[in-house]
Design a protein around this nucleic acid. Structure first.
Lengths: 137, 137
DNA sequence: TAAATTTGCTTGCATTTTGCAAGTGCAAAG
DNA sequence: CTTTGCACTTGCAAAATGCAAGCAAATTTA
């Protein structure tokens, strides 16, 4: 369950060892779009992550200080997951991935305007996005 | 061996289905640093990818037009792998990953000056990097 | 207040992917 | 014409994934 020794000191390798799989960045994506999510919210996402995988990924992200668990204001039965600053700082990575995908694949119409904004002034789009997310901390 | 149906239309999900694993971006990283690599070159990388995994990842990257195989000018026994334009366009993603990692982890000294350049003027660093790589196409 | 439901997981198990070691076939060098 | 190098492939054990069911605590409903 604990992370084993690093493959190398390469920053890309280090990063991939934490969130380099098919699911982690989707969890982070959900948190960027929705700010706060319950366990059930993640399960509702289109990609249909299996519940045990979700639990294991949330644990790894939490262990690596990318997300935190907060108590839900309305109910003790619910849990809120939120990005930390370290998680928020992954925003530029997700933006670049989106822009790459937009060049080579079809993008859902609902996402187009956002991508257009990001393309139009990338630096500002990223700075504003991060700023807004950090206000919620 | 062929890719199954997409989980969703989300550009991030689409991207992760191609190269969202612990190895693919390291292959792409090697090609960005070294422009061209033989099969053996990849195996020599610090992270020690298993040879069967390497073969399977190279195939997926090739099928998705991110890399191409070229014949080696000196020998038919060797193969050269090279990034396509689509692969080169992943450079911004790798830069952002590196910059994120640099904020939260120790970076090898040899990589520091490059990261410093990227931080200093990100847009220019990326543009120049892409331009240079595209000259080799 | 007892029963039913919701929520956040855990467990068991079959399938798939990974990792390691050894092997294979073709090309080139000795 | 035999040995070495290179690009993979194969076999198998171990780990990760995916699916369905289960479960305890909290909350809602009756």
């Amino acid at each position: 369950m604990a992370s084993s020794k690093k493959r190398s000191e390469c920053p890309i390798s280090t990063s991939l060892e934490i969130w380099g799989d098919k699911w982690s960045l989707l969890i982070i994506r959900d948190l960027m779009f929705k700010k706060q999510c319950t366990y059930g919210d993640f399960l509702k996402s289109q990609e249909k992550i299996a519940t045990n995988i979700l639990a294991s990924r949330l644990l790894v992200l939490e262990e690596n200080n990318i997300i935190v668990k907060l108590e839900h204001p309305e109910s003790k039965a619910k849990v809120l997951y939120q990005l930390t600053e370290k998680g928020i700082e992954l925003f530029p990575v997700l933006v670049e991935i989106s822009l790459w995908a937009e060049k080579y694949y079809d993008i859902p119409k609902e996402r187009e305007s956002l991508i257009a904004k990001a393309k139009n002034n990338k630096a500002e789009f990223i700075a504003k996005g991060i700023k807004k997310m950090k206000e919620g901390l």
